[in-house]
Design a protein around this nucleic acid. Structure first.
Lengths: 377, 377
DNA sequence: TTGATTTGTTCATTTAGTGAACTTAGTGTC
DNA sequence: GACACTAAGTTCACTAAATGAACAAATCAA
C-alpha cells in the first residue's frame, strides 16, 4: 500500500510526464530531503525508474518516470456481445486482447472473467506475476467506491456488488465504472487530458455518453448521474425517447438516431462517413440529417461549456471523421451558442477511437486505483 | 495562521453544527488524543467554545461550536448604487449595515471602503478589534486566488487587482468574488446548504446567476466562468441578448426580461408578484409571460441536473413567491425535462432573500477564507 | 585546473500524529 | 447512598514523516 505522499508523486508524474526529483519537490511543495526518500522507496518498489539525464549548469538532473511494467491491469467492457477484454500495462499500452461471452448474471460474468484470465495472461508471465487489478465498464450508475452497480437498465441490475463478486471469483482486486466515466479516466491517465484538471469527455457512438473531470478528479454527481448529457432536452416537445421524455439529445445526435433518420428518409447508407459522402455530393436528406444532429450536439456542448467552463472538451467517435459537414456544423453551433467572449476559448478536440475504447477505459479504472488510490484530492 | 487539521475541524463543525470531540475524531479519522489537542488549541484561540452537554450512558459529551464573535467580516456589494456594506460575525449574522458610493475606479472604491469602515465599526468595539477580512462581490470573473478581477463588463475592468488595492488602503485582508459564487459560498457556510457537498445556486433577480459547489468546494471553472447559466441558449434563434447571441435564458426568465415583456404587452405591472396576481385573475398576457419564463428556467435547471447531478438546487429570489403559477410551471418544467428515473430525486429549494444578499455573500467570502482557507480540499 | 552551480543525499531535529493507560463525570442497580 | 459500569476526554511516551543545514556529486565555464 502506497502512502499519500507517494501517490501525490505518482500523480504529478502521470500528469506532467518524467520529472526530476527537484522539479517534483517544487511542484508538490516538499523538501528535497523528503523527495529523495520518497523517490528511493518508489524506485525500490519498482514503480519508478530513472530515465534521461538533463544537462545544464550545475549537476545534471535525472528524470524519473513510471515503470510501465511494474503493474498490469485487465479491462472488461460489458457493452458489447461478446464482451471485449484487454490486458494493459501501467501506461495504458495494450498487451493482449480477448473477448468473453456477455451475460446479465453477475456470477456468470465472474466465471467468464476467471476463465478468460489465464488465456489473456498466457504469453505474459510478467503480467501474470504483477496483475494488480481488474476494471469493468458498464452502462449504468456506479457507486463512489467503484464497487457496486446501483442501477443498470441494459443489464437489468439494481444494486449489484459486481466488484466483490468478480474479485472473490478471480482473486484480483476489481473495480467497476460507468462507461463514459471510465473513458474520461483513461484520457486523464493515458490520453490527451493528462495535464488538464477540468475537462469533459463526450463519447459519440450508438449512444452519447459524457463525463466530467473537475479539479483533477472524476466528478460522479450526487447520484452517480453527472454527465447524462444524452438526455438533456434539446428540442422541447421533440421526438419521444426511450427514456420516456421528449427531444433528448440522444434522439437527434447519437449515431443510432442518425442511422434511423437516414433509413426513415429512404437512404441506404446509415454510417456517419457514408452520410458525409452523400452530403458532399449534394444529397439534401443527408445534409439535413447531419446538420440537425451536429447542431443539436453543438448546442448541448455549448450549454455544457456555459455551465461548467471546462478547459477542454474531448469528443471521441468510433467512426467517421470531423473534417466534413458534421464537424463544421458542430463547431459552428458551439461557437454561436457560447458567450461571444468565450468563443474559441474552450478547445474542442476530436479523437477517433477503436472498439477497444471501453475495455481500455475499464483497465484505466484499475490503474487509477493503483496509482492514485480511492481517496479524494 | 491555522493548521490544515484545525481547518478540517472547523469545516466539519461548520457543516454539521456543534459536535463533541469524540464525534469529530470519528468523522475526521483522528485519534481522540489528537482531537483533544486540536480542540484545546482552538478553544484557547477563541475560535471554538463548549456548548451543551449531552447526557447518556458514560461520561457526558460536550459539544463544541464556533464562537460567533471570534472574528468579524465586512462584505461589500458592487452591484448596486449606492453599494451596500454589511458587518457580519463568523456565523453570518449581520451586525451593522451601511452603504457607500459606487465607482468604477478601484482606488475610489478603496477610499470609499476605508471611509465607511469606521462608521460600520463605530458601535462595535469587538468587531473593530477582531475584524478579520473584507469580501467584495462584483459582477464579472475573478481569478482563483480571489484577488484579481479578470474581467467585468459592468465595471469595465480588465485584470484589476482589486483585493490588493483595497487591502493596501484599509489594512485588512481582502478577497473578491463573483456575485453568484459569493452567494453560493454564503449558503454553504451560513445557509441551507451547509451539509451538502454538491449543489448549485441559482440567483433569480434582474439578472440570473448560478454557481456550483462540487465535492464541498466552490467550482470556478477553467476561466472562472462556471455557472454562466444565464447565457445558455434556451430558444435557439430566439430574441437577441445583450451578450451578442440569441435566445439566452437571460432574455426570457430574468426579472428584467419578464418586466420588459410585460411592458411590451401593455401591462402596467412588471414585478413577479404583480404578474402572478394578474395571472390568477385570468390575464392571458401575464399567464403567457410567466409560463414562458418559468418553462425556460425549468428547462435550464433540468439541463443542469442532467449535466451535473447536484444534490440540491437552491433558487434565491428577491421578490415574489414560488407557490403561484411561476413556481408551479417551473417545477413541472424541471420534472418533464429530467430523466424520468431522476424526477423528484433532486430537491429544489426556494429562498426569498433581501437586498443584502450580495453583501452577505461578499462577507462570507472573507469568512470562508478565515475558516477554511485558500487551500483546496 | 579551478570555481561556479545545481542536483541529490545524509542526518539530526521538529512536528503531528498514534495507542494505551488514566481521569472524569455521569447513569443504573441494589 | 455505595458501587459497578460506561463512555468522554486527557496525558504521555513513542513513531512516522516531514524539515533544514551541511555535504557529496556531477557537470559547465573560464
Amino acid at each position: 500500500m502506497l502512502t499519500s505522499s507517494q501517490r501525490q508523486l505518482l500523480r504529478v508524474i502521470s500528469e506532467c510526464g518524467p520529472l526530476s526529483r527537484t522539479e517534483m519537490a517544487q511542484l508538490l511543495g516538499f523538501s528535497k530531503a523528503a523527495m529523495s526518500g520518497l523517490a528511493r522507496d518508489l524506485i525500490d518498489l519498482g514503480v519508478l525508474h530513472e530515465t534521461e539525464t538533463v544537462y545544464g549548469p550545475g549537476r545534471p538532473s535525472v528524470r524519473l518516470d513510471l515503470s510501465p511494467e511494474c503493474a498490469f491491469f485487465i479491462g472488461v467492457s460489458l457493452l458489447e456481445e461478446p464482451a471485449p477484454m484487454v490486458l494493459s500495462d501501467l501506461t495504458g499500452k495494450i498487451i493482449a486482447r480477448r473477448s468473453m461471452p456477455l451475460s446479465r448474471d453477475p456470477a456468470v460474468i465472474a466465471d467468464a472473467v476467471a476463465q478468460a484470465l489465464p488465456e489473456l495472461l498466457a504469453n505474459h508471465p510478467d503480467a501474470a506475476d504483477r496483475l494488480s487489478g481488474i476494471g469493468i465498464a458498464l452502462s449504468g450508475f456506479v457507486d463512489e467506491t467503484q464497487a457496486r452497480c446501483v442501477q443498470s437498465t441494459l443489464l437489468n441490475w439494481q444494486d449489484v456488488p459486481l466488484a466483490r463478486i468478480v474479485s472473490d471469483r478471480c482473486g484480483v482486486e476489481t473495480f467497476i465504472e460507468n462507461d463514459a466515466k471510465a473513458v474520461a479516466v483513461s484520457e486523464k491517465l493515458f490520453g490527451t487530458a493528462r495535464d488538464i484538471s477540468n475537462f469533459s469527455v463526450v463519447t459519440l457512438g450508438d449512444g452519447i455518453g459524457c463525463a466530467h473531470f473537475i479539479d483533477g478528479k472524476l466528478y460522479r454527481g450526487n447520484h452517480g448521474g453527472a454527465g447524462e448529457i444524452a438526455h438533456c432536452t434539446i428540442e422541447p416537445g421533440g421526438s419521444p425517447c426511450r427514456c420516456g421524455k421528449r427531444g433528448c439529445l440522444d434522439t437527434i445526435a447519437s449515431m443510432k438516431a442518425v442511422g434511423e433518420m437516414a433509413r426513415a428518409e429512404g437512404l441506404t447508407c446509415t454510417s456517419l462517413s457514408e452520410l458525409e459522402a452523400q452530403a458532399s455530393v449534394g444529397n439534401a436528406a443527408a445534409i439535413r440529417i447531419l446538420h440537425r444532429a451536429a447542431s443539436a450536439l453543438g448546442l448541448a456542448i455549448a450549454n455544457l461549456i456555459q455551465m461548467n467552463d471546462p478547459g477542454l472538451i474531448l469528443i471521441t467517435h468510433v467512426e467517421g471523421s470531423f473534417d466534413g459537414l458534421f464537424g463544421t456544423v458542430l463547431k459552428q453551433a458551439v461557437e454561436t451558442n457560447v458567450l461571444p467572449r468565450y468563443a474559441g476559448q474552450t478547445p474542442i478536440r476530436f479523437k477517433r477511437v477503436d472498439s477497444d475504447i471501453w475495455a481500455r477505459g475499464a483497465a484505466s479504472i484499475a490503474a487509477h486505483q493503483f496509482l492514485i488510490g480511492p481517496h479524494s484530492s
